[in-house]
Simulated assay, not measured.
Amino acid sequence: MPVSKSEFDSLPPCDFYTPAELLEDDQMYTVYEIARLLQGLDPDAEIDEGTEDVLLDWTIPWIMNNADDLVVAEPRTDNEPAHYGLKGTADGDESDVGDENE
Rank of each mutant, 00 (worst) to 15 (best):
A35N: 07
L11F: 12
T51G: 05
W62A: 03
D68T: 14
P12M: 12
V54G: 03
T89Q: 13
E24F: 01
S4G: 00
E7Q: 09
L37A: 07
M28E: 01
D53F: 03
M64P: 01
A45Y: 00
D42S: 14
L38M: 10
D42I: 06
D91C: 08
P81W: 02
D68N: 11
R76V: 03
L22K: 08
D96T: 13
H83P: 00
L23N: 06
K87I: 12
Q39V: 02
Q27K: 13
D44K: 14
S6G: 00
L41V: 03
V54Y: 04
C14S: 13
E33R: 03
M28N: 00
S4V: 00
S10K: 14
L55F: 14
F16N: 05
D68A: 15
D48F: 14
A67C: 07
D99M: 04
I34K: 04
D42M: 12
E33G: 04
D96M: 13
V97F: 10
D9K: 12
L22M: 07
A90L: 11
L22T: 03
V3E: 06
A45W: 00
Q39M: 11
P13N: 15
V31D: 04
L86T: 10
A73S: 15
P2F: 02
I60W: 05
L56N: 05
L38D: 02
E21S: 11
D57E: 09
A35G: 12
G98K: 09
D25A: 07
M1S: 06
W62L: 08
W58H: 09
V71L: 07
A20K: 12
E94T: 08
V72N: 03
P43R: 08
P19R: 08
S6L: 07
K5V: 07
N79A: 10
E94S: 14
G98D: 15
